[in-house]
């Protein structure tokens, strides 16, 4: 039984046709993610920032599963939490000068950054609220991984091959840039 189906079954026990359980799960995930993201961009310890990033990425994975995109959610855990965060921790360790208590941005720059962030949030949020008033997500079943595979290897085969070449180029590029001569 999938997580989505389990949550929907839970709903029918609790409240008939509304989607209470899904909304509660969303609320908890969203709250945790936003608090962790705010801590990530304000903490002065670089290692703590990486660990807060793990919480946000796990929350995004939970959101994907809530939306019925289970394959993307699992890939998120594998690639982001398994690989990218470890890469970040290695980067932090190799630049030891920045370890521990760290820089403080000057207050003028920080004030401008807060202004830009709030403006981005207000403009994007306003546009979103204006455009998608009451569109609802009520997916009957989670998307099938087989369907994703079929679509990638038929309709999206050219972008897929381009991504594989891009990964190869990035691999070679990273080695060339970081290599000691």
């Amino acid at each position: 039984m999938t997580v989505l189906a389990a949550l929907q079954g839970f709903d029918s026990l609790m409240s008939g046709d509304t989607v209470v359980a899904q909304n509660i799960a969303f609320g908890i995930l969203a709250l945790v993610m936003i608090v962790a993201a705010l801590r990530m961009v304000t903490t002065s310890n670089v290692v703590h920032a990486a660990l807060y990033l793990v919480i946000v990425l796990a929350g995004v994975s939970g959101i994907f599963i809530l939306l019925g995109a289970e394959f993307v959610g699992v890939t998120q855990v594998l690639v982001y939490i398994g690989a990218i965060v470890v890469l970040f921790l290695f980067g932090i360790m190799l630049t030891r000068g920045a370890l521990g208590e760290d820089e403080e941005a000057d207050t003028e720059k920080r004030r401008m950054a807060v202004l830009v962030g709030v403006l981005v949030l207000v403009v994007t949020g306003g546009a979103v609220l204006d455009s998608f008033g009451d569109a609802a997500v009520n997916r009957a079943a989670p998307s099938l991984t087989a369907e994703i595979g079929d679509t990638i290897f038929s309709q999206y085969i050219v972008p897929f091959e381009a991504v594989s070449v891009l990964l190869l180029a990035a691999l070679i590029g990273a080695i060339v840039v970081a290599r000691k001569d």
Binding site: I34, A37, M40, V41, A113, V116, V120, T124, G125
Partner: peptide, 10 residues
């Protein structure tokens, strides 16, 4: 949008 704005701030 909220995560995006926090990322822009960062």
């Amino acid at each position: 949008a909220a995560l995006f704005a926090i990322g822009v701030y960062g």
